[in-house]
Design a protein around this nucleic acid. Sequence first.
DNA 1: GCGTATAATGTTATGACATTACATCGACAT
DNA 2: ATGTCGATGTAATGTCATAACATTATACGC
Lengths: 133, 133
Amino acid sequence: MTTRNQLTRNQNLVMHALDSAAGPLSAYTILDRLRDDGFRAPLQVYRALEKLQEMGLVHRLESINAFVACAHPDCHSHDMIAFAICEKCGKVDEFSDDVVQERLGAWTARHRFKPSKTTVEIRGHCASCSADG
Amino acid sequence: MTTRNQLTRNQNLVMHALDSAAGPLSAYTILDRLRDDGFRAPLQVYRALEKLQEMGLVHRLESINAFVACAHPDCHSHDMIAFAICEKCGKVDEFSDDVVQERLGAWTARHRFKPSKTTVEIRGHCASCSADG
DNA sequence: GCGTATAATGTTATGACATTACATCGACAT
DNA sequence: ATGTCGATGTAATGTCATAACATTATACGC
């Protein structure tokens, strides 16, 4: 976690907000939670999030416009990360699948498509939430 | 294409706007293009889009907040559809992959996760755009 | 035809998410 | 001290999506 120590104040605050959260947070929710720390404008959050994403410490969930702390020690080891997002409780499971990665890679290679970012997000109900009803 | 004939006026207009477009359109772009046809408010577009998506005639691209006409005669034949989206020219390729579907299905089954919607979107540069530079 | 239930539409306002533009500050090398 | 570069502060604006409520169209049993 060498990168972790080089974070700026704002990046640290945002990272901590995500770490302490049970699930993903929207940028504006993060903003609200950091009001007492001096945050005033969305841009302070978005700028920090951008850097944290570059460092692989945070992921953006495209399908729900929210951000989540990376669950793995170092996410840079995978190109593609998949998410299972519970629409009831908000819990997010992060996983990677080499076969999926391979297949998508095969498609892009075959079509000479140069991928820059791949999104795999499954929304639904997690085990405990679908048990509830 | 039986469903196609049962579309309402608004649904028809939105469908036609997407059909005539080279690539995906945002809801507000659709709205602008339908001003002359009497469209005034975003909701007219969003309501039509919602129905068209239910019928499988239109897909929403989560990662770019845009909508695209389905490329296949009947998309209901697949649970999961993947998209390759060119960030330069906007071209979208739609495909499905049984192996990917299988693997994601295996993961959700193993974790007793009940999926409702799955998003697979690859952003990058298409063949012709990456050739350009 | 007539009443009625249901779906679709029109309109205004508002909520939610994200970026542009520009000024300032701090660390650091020259 | 000064130029440079990255981070920050702030206001304004742009973009995407839905809530709430009134009205109109359509289908269907009688």
